[in-house]
Design a protein around this nucleic acid. Structure first.
Lengths: 233, 233, 233, 233
DNA sequence: GATGAATGAGGTTTCATTCAT
DNA sequence: TATGAATGAAACCTCATTCAT
């Protein structure tokens, strides 16, 4: 028998590393240029492997795109991790979810880029990926829980739809990041300047909480974007 | 008998018509497939002209893209026409602006598609188009006016930044439209179903108004999503 | 009858002017970019007429090329005008012919450029233009006359072939001009600097005359390149 | 039985072969039709490869042109190999250089064709290729050496510029070849008929040597054009 | 005679993918 | 598993030419 390498099937570990490197590079390339604009050549070079290997591992550009999408959605779930919100005061939990979602889009522009592109294709690829739909479930459970607790405490209005709320909450952060460049151009300043970002993050939280507040509830103290200036209003 | 065409400088009018047809087709094609994915061939066929004529009129795909962007931004300005809001009650004006913006994105998905793509390119093209920046001016003037009047009347909080407010207001509608397909897939239903749209449009207005409300101001009666139930506040 | 313009058929004179302007522009364009590289568009713009008019007057690019060639050859004949040499001392006549030919190529680079290009096409066009061959006749008559007179006077060697001599004489000036740019690049200096040109022009004359001198004839005084220094050696 | 290929790094040797085949075909195509007139399609077919491979190896038509130029200049240097002349009698060395250069242009019309075309482009490409300038150095060293020895021996005139001499010497052969077709047309005979070529080659040698001869030096016996009659001078 | 619009064939170049090793 | 060479379909773009006016 041939000399066996210890502990693993020969090449297997390297192969997994290469696969990962390719997927990383693919996410970068797709985020930078879209699906049609991405170049298999460039992405292979970025990953440090021969172009043929990309096809060996992923079969085609389209399959690679799906794998990249899957990675993006995993990021999304990990970033909007709902567990930490379960025990919070409902308003505070919603505020954190909104701000966290904005922060997530800021930290991972590739999420925004790939979601945009996938929508350009009318979600053709994700529709065929059942695992992705399931990702939303824990998040929605948490939102429903927060809403229920807030309603029970009489601090949230009663007619809030969880889906619509999630969309609004996400949209507040999404647009800011998705349109970073055109907004920067229109307003002649960097939208990602820390001060600007902090102010907007405060707005995002305030807006969601203001919307949720029950008609008769007392207005809560507002949170400013800058912790040091809290309670200044 | 053949219909007699009006006397005119030969070719001149046809040229403008052809140019327009090409630009229309370009907006469609770019909106459907992005900049890299768009095919000059397909777009020329759609416009009913020879491929070469597209280049005759616009020079290159990139220049055609710029022309399409310009058209999109004109749509945006026309749709967010601020004049009508100038005389309204401030809260009502803001609500209308928010809902109208959402409606605009729904009616013109090409605005969303092209803005996404332009951001993928880091606004490389619009940055070189000074006319576009100026489009925001009247809109901002109106927003500032509404804010000032609301503050003066004591119904708006005092610390609202017009730019951030605009971004939030637009983002609420944008995300819903930009992610129409992935959201439809995730939630297993058509996001553009009239009932769903109406509910969300109400949310958009409510959220902006709730955010703006001054701490001590009386909560206004809520407006429903259905125009038939409109009441003057 | 319609009102007749005086003196000429209406439009005729303008038409001739336009034709000339086109031909001028064509020679420039062909000289700058060759036959394949020339652009009908560019040439029409240069001539200040609509592109269609070029086709109206000349029918096709190829026909325009032929017309340009004909103009070039006319220049060549006018430049190498042999009449003035008929009465000179034979050696001096040859010297002048050689130097004059060099000067002609320098003054009209388009001659060189178009002749090169026509040779690329294996003289396909000129072969079908009988007028062009006839252009050489008066020049050859003069060369033969100079040679005969020089031989009769015992100052020229006896075995000189007029055709070969003409080729050598022309080649001395031609190469310098045809390769102006690569030579300038190779020798890191402008080949058309007046001093360099003058020195070479002297060489050209000297070389032809030296070749022609009969074995026993006395060496003639050399002529320098700079008229002012004449007879200084 | 199949012929076993030698063991080698896969693809590597084939790639070099393909590259060479492409370059060969490119020189042929460029020589036949110029830079603008050359067709990548035709050249790829001639080389027996897919069109895409040409771009894979050379990037663009312009880069391929540069590679072809480099090959031409290598031919030029190899053909004007100066080493062999170093030990000859100075006049004989010059004569051989002149005749050899003519012979080189005859044997390799592609040299003439590509140099003409490169001059049409004002040496834009060679100017950016420093290796090419260096090619002239050994040739010039030899010319200078021949001139110095001829002057020292009192057989060459003293005022000869090496650069100008080289240009004249090359020009004598160049024009004959560059204008082969128009001259053949004008003189109604094939310029490349052996007898005609031999006579002109003799002229070329005679003319250079005659020019160089010092005023007081004895006229050397003339060399005929036909090798059979060669006599050592 | 002259124009400006329009065309279609064909040019260079790109790129996902395949294949032999 | 991995590579580097190679392909062919199709992309963008050019340009001589035609045509209605």
């Amino acid at each position: 028998m041939a000399v066996a390498r210890q502990r693993r099937k020969p090449g297997t570990r390297d192969a997994a590393l290469a696969r990962d490197a390719i997927l990383d590079a693919a996410v970068r390339e797709f985020a930078a240029r879209g699906l049609a604009g991405a170049r298999m050549d460039a992405l292979a070079r970025d990953a440090g492997v021969a172009k043929g290997l990309v096809f060996h591992h992923f079969g085609s550009k389209e399959e690679l795109w799906k794998a990249a999408l899957e990675r993006i959605y995993a990021l999304l779930r990990a970033g909007q991790d709902a567990d930490a919100l379960g025990t919070l005061d409902p308003a505070e939990g919603m505020r954190r979810l909104a701000r966290g979602t904005f922060r997530l889009f800021r930290a991972h522009p590739e999420i925004v880029a790939l979601m945009n592109e996938e929508n350009l294709h009318r979600a053709r690829h994700v529709r065929a990926m059942p695992r992705i739909r399931a990702l939303y479930n824990p998040l929605f459970a948490t939102i429903e829980d927060l809403l229920a607790r807030g309603r029970a405490a009489g601090v949230f209005r009663a007619d809030v739809d969880a889906t619509a709320l999630y969309i609004a909450l996400a949209g507040l952060g999404y647009f800011y990041c998705a349109n970073r460049w055109t907004l920067s151009s229109a307003f002649a300043g960097d939208m990602f300047a820390p001060r600007r970002v902090a102010a907007y993050e405060a707005l995002v939280g305030d807006m969601v909480v203001a919307y949720l507040r029950a008609p008769g509830a007392a207005a809560p103290a507002r949170r400013s974007a800058l912790p040091a200036r809290r309670r200044r209003e």
